[in-house]
Amino acid sequence: MADLALNMATRTLPLSGVHGGSSVARLEPASPAARLSLRARSEDVAALSTALGIALPVKPKTSASSHGRTALWLGPDEWLVIDEGQGGLLQAANDCAAPHSATDVSHRNTAILVSGPGAAMAINSGCPLDLSLKAFPVGACSRTLFGKIEVVLLRTAEDAFRVEVWRSFSDYAFGLLSEGARDAAL
């Protein structure tokens, strides 16, 4: 009898196995995460925050984190919620009675973690945002451009960023970041 276990399909992640960077900026693919694209009116933010267990930020360019979930402000009525913890993100939104739109984009995006003293410079090789600590402190986030693609940027530490990118653009993003990391080391 055939061993079914041998025929099991395995999921290949968009950036599986890649590694790169330079002496000043390290690049690594982030682990898989659940993601929600969330839209809601300001009067429903409180109810959704309770349902998701995370206070949705209402100030531009800010994020909030708790229990493995991070909510990123993208616009006055739009958030990207990333769950790297317990899961159940979409269900939590579905259980909320307040009117909103929640779309599961877990597999639309992947993320690249950029860290090290040259991290900001590596990103700035293709991104026009001011990434000084004053203009873009720890916890700051924004949708912006990186080269010719759109990305969502989150500063996770003084010298660390999470670059959320559409999966089909991840090769391009990793390639350009590698170039940027090399330039930052010059």
């Binding site: 531009p60 360019k61 616009g75 006055p76 026009p128 945002l129 924004s142 912006t144 451009l145």
Partner: peptide, 11 residues
């Protein structure tokens, strides 16, 4: 006026 920020024309 929504981001309350000066941003590159590319965006």
């Amino acid at each position: 006026p929504y981001c309350e920020d000066d941003r590159s024309e590319l965006e």
